[in-house]
Each structure stands twice: as C-alpha cells, then as structure tokens.
Write a protein that binds this DNA or RNA. Sequence first.
DNA 1: AAAAATTAGTTTGATAGTCAAATTATTTAC
DNA 2: GTAAATAATTTGACTATCAAACTAATTTTT
Lengths: 144, 144
Amino acid sequence: MNINHTLNEVLVRLFRNINMIEERALRTGEYKDVTTNDMHVIEAVGMEGAKNMTRVARSLEVTTGTLTIAINSLVKKGYVDRTRSEEDRRVVLISLSEKGKRAYLHHRKFHEQMIDSIVKELTEEEQAVLEKALTKLAQFFQTS
Amino acid sequence: MNINHTLNEVLVRLFRNINMIEERALRTGEYKDVTTNDMHVIEAVGMEGAKNMTRVARSLEVTTGTLTIAINSLVKKGYVDRTRSEEDRRVVLISLSEKGKRAYLHHRKFHEQMIDSIVKELTEEEQAVLEKALTKLAQFFQTS
DNA sequence: AAAAATTAGTTTGATAGTCAAATTATTTAC
DNA sequence: GTAAATAATTTGACTATCAAACTAATTTTT
C-alpha cells in the first residue's frame, strides 16, 4: 500500500509533466525554437539518410497532412531538408540538415544523461530489477 | 551499456506514447468526451471542494486565460460547476459536479490498476529498487 | 497507348490548446 | 473617493491535429 502510493505519486507527476519537463530541458541556446513535437519529428526523421513522408508519418502515428505542417515549419527553421525523389516524382524525401543533426544529438545526449543519472546509483542487480519493472510497465500500456 | 540502452528504449517509448495511451484508456463509455487535457484539469480541481481559477491555473502551470477556455468546455460538458464567490465577487469558484467526481475516480482507478499490475509482479526488494530509480528520475527532472 | 485506378503529398476547413496583452469588474490602499 | 491592485475573461495569434478534397504522378487495365 505504502509503496504503491509512492510509486503512484512519482508516476503521476512524471506523466503529467513529462512533456513540459523535457521541453524545458531541451529548448536551450541554439535550439530555442524547437518544440517537443518538433523534436519527436526530428527523432523520427533520424540520422540514416532520407525517408519519405508516408513512412515518417506512419512511424509517428499521425496523418501525412499533419506531418506536412510540421515539416513546413522545420524546413523554415532550418532543421530539415526536403527534396523530391527523382525515381518517383510523387515522393518527397526528408532528411536532417546539419543543424537538425546537431539537435538530434543534443536530444539524445539529454536522454543518455537522464539514464546515466538513474543507473549510476544502482548495482547491477538493481539495474536488472529496474529493467524488469519497466518492461512490465510498457507491457501494461501496450495491452490496456 | 546494454541496460542503459534498454532503459532508454523503454522510457522513450513510454514518454512518447504516454498521452495517447492514457487517453485511449480513459476515453471509454461515459467519458468519451474527456480529453487528456480535460482530465488533468479535473484532477487539478480535485475532490476537496471549490477552488478559484488562479489557484488551479497555477497548479497546472498555465495562464488563467487558458484555464478559462478549458473550464468553459468542462462546464458545457457537465464535469465542472462554476459559481462566483460571495465574499469576493471577482473570484470564480470551480468544483467537480457529480459526473466530474465520477470521472475523477475513474481516472484514479486507472492509475491504481496500473500500479497494481506492475507491483504484483515484483518482490518487495524489487519494489524498493523501482521506487528508488523513479525517485532519482523525478529528481533528475527537477534539477535539469 | 488511352483510360482508369492507385498512390504520395498538399491544402482546406474545423477543433483544441496555448500565450500575451487588452479589457472588465471588484476590492484594497491611501 | 480616487488610484492601484487583483481576478477573471476576452481577443488575437500561433501550433497541432484530423478528415476530406484536391493535385500530380505512376501503375494497371483493357
């Protein structure tokens, strides 16, 4: 009961504030103009060369219309390059610009620091336990 | 490295999908018309009698203008009652209607089930580790 | 090879959520 | 009793989202 209560408190606070928290941590210096949403798009576009709109939209679980709007803004801000495919001229290829790649790595570093700050306090056994618990949590969400 | 990677994967997935997931779980039956945002407002209004706009807005970290919009919608949907204070007629008091209270409890039950489904799979030692890790995570967010 | 169907992406029209700044109504301070 | 402060709402602007209409290009059918 007590542990449940504490866990619930922590989880509720994390869930409620997660976007705000992450945004606050990420929107610094060079990346002031990147929203959390922009960052998710940047992550989905990824570092491994160009992807088409449909593929990225599907991975983000939004419509291509929604992605078009997001990409318009990211192109204007200079994080994403957009070109038409030569093989199939219906297809639009999007990829990260140099600035976009820097933002991607900045974001990834934030995540790595976050994980490190947790893991470094735990023994190996404890780490294994944590992994098990989080996997359970992810499963709960997938099936409910 | 390996554990770090797994932890990152799980956390990233949880963070990215948290709103969608919670919304899907909550918008059922009687509560089809409640958005995640509505639910956060309902939670902030709470069960312990009337609160004024400024107080609730501050606890949600939004402007009172934003809260006014949200409350307009929740009043229209029947989840929140709005009255003017008699002592100070500038003040607007908001509280949960009966329907609002039911929605609040529905939401809390979701969280409790979630916590139970995690905790019941873990030994007491394991529970302690999870709590420790999540507390660290919350601390990381508070200081970064 | 022309017409029809499909596919990729954009645009449009609608809704929700957000903020800053202007406005209204009321209370407090001098 | 006027001025200042406070509480809330309204306004105007922006982002995010979807479904549906639309445009352009490719593939399939006949």
